[in-house]
Computed example of a mutant assay.
Amino acid sequence: MKRVLITGAAGFLGSHLCDRFLLEGFHVIAMDNLITGDLQNIEHLFKEEHFEFYHHDVTKFVHVPGKLDYILHFASPASPIDYLKIPIQTLKVGSLGTHNLLGLAKEKKARILIASTSEVYGDPLVHPQSEDYYGNVNTIGPRGVYDEAKRFMESITMAYHRFHGLETRIARIFNTYGPRMRLNDGRVIPAFIGQALRGEDLTIFGDGMQTRSFCYVDDQIEGLFRLLMSDCNDPINIGNPEEITIRDFAQEIINLTQSNQKVVYKSLPVDDPLQRQPDITRAKELLGWEPKISRSEGMKRTYQYFQSLPKEELFKTAHRDFSDRNKA
């Protein structure tokens, strides 16, 4: 039986990856320090014979007994609220954490896939964004702690591939949504749905003409699985190229939730990208992958998930208590 280590396993994408690899017949070793992850996302898996969980911070030395065939590194804060609240931890998990896991992959002779992001493109000057675009990133801006952590991840991963001959895969993940997102994590879809469910006005930052491209989680997981099993060492965009303005998307949410909230506008955060659309030509050609689930269907499933949450979840503050873990 193949064995896979998934870091960030109690998070949104990590938990869905655990589901997929168990379904594929793997023995899954899940790892998370639970700073932003939630055990509720994987509690249904604890009864599985071929699932085990390690409560561990990957910025410290990582040891996993026995063989490993694959490693998927998804440990990182992913929402602006989180990585602006814990900037040092965000930088450490992208640098020290990635270094530790690449070393583990080298020791175990395992193939490793790292979760990079469309944020490596920054506020792009090229549209849509293809993998050969180097990006437009403010290294010292507030978002730089996330953007540069991911760019470093890519650099050190390619160094291990070229210098040590390590089998590496790099996924540049664009906006993804679906069940198990945190309702109040600050990203646009849970933010809009949460506001609609609470009867609040929908908040748009900027004039609403900035664009995003949303990929449903099932499509994202399929793309990641195909990338891991491919022969592609260079970065590959995994996302949905169907682009929409935030203003139009807010209206879609109002229609979906059958609410009559107004839209209110606030100033745009520093370095917030104005356009985001993946060029997925490489994924189509090399992985035979493209999204299958329409935004209308994906949003219907996501809204039903948020509706099913306990009412107290609606009113939890978006600013989680990170205590002193950021000071290390």
Rank of each mutant, 00 (worst) to 15 (best):
N138C: 04
T90N: 06
D57C: 07
V58G: 06
T117R: 04
L96R: 14
E167P: 14
V120I: 15
V126G: 00
E48N: 14
H161A: 14
T117I: 05
K85D: 13
K108V: 07
K150Q: 03
E49Y: 00
K150C: 06
N175L: 09
Q40F: 10
I173E: 07
E43F: 04
N138P: 00
L45P: 09
I170D: 05
E131K: 01
Y134C: 08
H164P: 00
S130F: 11
V137P: 06
Y83F: 15
G165Q: 04
L113N: 06
Y54D: 00
V145I: 08
H50A: 08
T59Q: 11
M153W: 00
F46L: 11
T90Q: 02
K47W: 02
H44K: 15
E52R: 05
V58C: 13
F51P: 09
I173C: 04
V137F: 01
Y146S: 01
G97R: 04
T98L: 11
F163T: 11
K67I: 09
E167R: 12
A171I: 05
R162A: 12
I86L: 03
N136K: 12
T157V: 08
Q89L: 15
N100Y: 11
L45H: 01
N136L: 00
R143M: 10
P65R: 07
K109R: 15
Y177S: 04
H127V: 12
I156Y: 12
Y133T: 04
G103H: 13
A149Y: 03
